[in-house]
């Protein structure tokens, strides 16, 4: 497997911030970039021992086919589900426009 060496650039962090949907100021991006480079040195170490013959663990105890009974349980009423909505209208969540004009 190819080893990945990461050096975070401001440009790269800005791209990640876009993917994560978080707005950052220029100064925050600079700080974050240098912090991520420090962390990067600490985490690159995992690649030293992750050989091809080692299988991956996704879960501490492998469970298979966990199904509950197909029975009606308690569910939230519409009113409680909407109770914490920042905005609501006609029993629905009111959200900002999804598509911009341009």
């Amino acid at each position: 497997m190819e080893k990945a060496e990461t050096n975070f650039s401001v440009q790269k962090v800005k791209h990640l911030a876009d993917l994560a949907r978080i707005e950052f100021s220029e100064q925050e991006l600079d700080e974050l970039t240098s912090e991520l480079n420090v962390i990067s040195d600490a985490i690159n170490k995992v690649q030293e021992v992750a050989n091809d013959d080692v299988e991956r663990t996704t879960h501490p105890f492998a469970l298979e086919n966990v199904f509950r009974k197909d029975a009606v349980g308690e569910t939230l009423e519409q009113k409680s589900a909407l109770a914490a909505a920042p905005k609501q209208k006609d029993g629905m969540f009111l959200v900002p426009q999804i598509l911009a004009e341009d």
Partner: peptide
């Protein structure tokens, strides 16, 4: 969140997340 977004992004997933899962096995 930013670090995690990076570790899961295309081109890095195997090297980071995949390797870390292997360490978990070890």
């Amino acid at each position: 969140i930013i670090l995690g977004t990076h570790a899961l992004s295309s081109g890095y997933y195997d090297a980071y997340y995949g390797s870390a899962q292997k360490v978990r096995t070890l």
